[in-house]
Design a protein around this nucleic acid. Structure first.
Lengths: 174, 174
DNA sequence: CGGTGATAGTTGCATTTGCAACCATGTCAA
DNA sequence: TTGACATGGTTGCAAATGCAACTATCACCG
């Protein structure tokens, strides 16, 4: 659980010291900065779930994601995982190594192109995925519920939009 | 070396070469998992901006955030920053150390409670913030534009909701 | 063939992290 | 005053990460 740290910190007699108040020099408002908000939200929602797969299976975030992707797509090469998940090559490589070692995914070199290894969840891997997947579903449902079903749907659309348009060149570079 | 993050990844016409078949077993659908989408979106939108402040000022994400918070709130102690930003104690501590060293923030021990140091942007710090802030604004505007202004507003609301730990509404505004 | 250049995946190394233990100071109550 | 406990902040260390080589394989062109 993300312990909220909710603060009784800011009541006026529990002071944020001296010169509070916005700094006039800049018009930049962090609280409305989309990347920032996205980050916070992502952190907030990821963290509590991360605790779970970490505690129960000693999984890294990356590892969990790799598993999830393999669960979703059946079999993939490492590069496919990269493309789909937007995770760095190296990270995937190491996650795969670890997961293979634990017997949760299998890796079979492709004959037609021996540079590639085809990755797949093993039976054990499926067990893990299913267990965690159930949790994930429940958690997700709770989140959507909290937002309102329709709103949640809208959110998903926008997020997809942002993901697709991530770091593009048509964005201002002063 | 700047714009890695390749993402012609998910658009429907994407080949995804080696995918052989879906995996039946699990009912978990990664593509709809909110924390996952949020993460992706956060990554996508943060990265390109991060490149900028990293290249230009050698700033870490955390450092940038600390600066932004100090810019927003004027002066804070490290713990205040933690509470506001939801960043780990340690991370803040180190960021502050680095930023102080570079002369971008000042740290003054509080007399009433010598455990605390009051942090503030120096003039130099303000310069940095203003420069980057301008970029940030432009970038943010572009993102909102891409989403549609109204949709973007809705998005912000939902994100705040997810962040949960509280609308910044209880904080000194302006 | 041989050469050039992409692609899959790994490894080395310097940074960043996360977590827990650790000071120093402050608070409150007996 | 003293002692128990809370708080602000730092540090040590073991992971996790990012980036730039580097290997091995393939593809194509002459």
């Amino acid at each position: 659980m993300t312990a909220p740290l909710q603060n009784d910190a800011l009541p006026e007699d529990q002071p944020i010291p001296t010169t509070r108040g916005q700094d006039r020099a800049s018009s930049f408002s962090l609280d409305d900065f989309l990347p920032y908000l996205l980050n916070q939200a992502a952190e907030a929602t990821s963290r509590s779930f991360a605790v779970r797969y970490k505690a129960e299976y000693g999984l890294t975030r990356t590892q969990w994601r790799v598993i999830a992707h393999l669960g979703r797509f059946g079999s993939l090469t490492a590069v496919d995982v990269c493309r789909l998940s937007q995770i760095e090559k190296t990270k995937v490589s190491r996650a795969v190594a670890a997961l293979t070692e634990r017997g949760w995914i299998s890796r079979v070199p492709e004959v037609r192109d021996r540079r590639r290894d085809v990755l797949q969840l093993t039976t054990g891997g499926h067990v893990v995925l299913n267990r965690l997947g159930a949790n994930a579903n429940a958690y997700d449902a709770a989140l959507r519920d909290h937002l309102g079903t329709d709103a949640a749907k809208g959110l998903v659309l926008m997020l997809r939009r942002l993901i697709g348009q991530g770091s593009r060149e048509d964005l201002p570079h002063d």
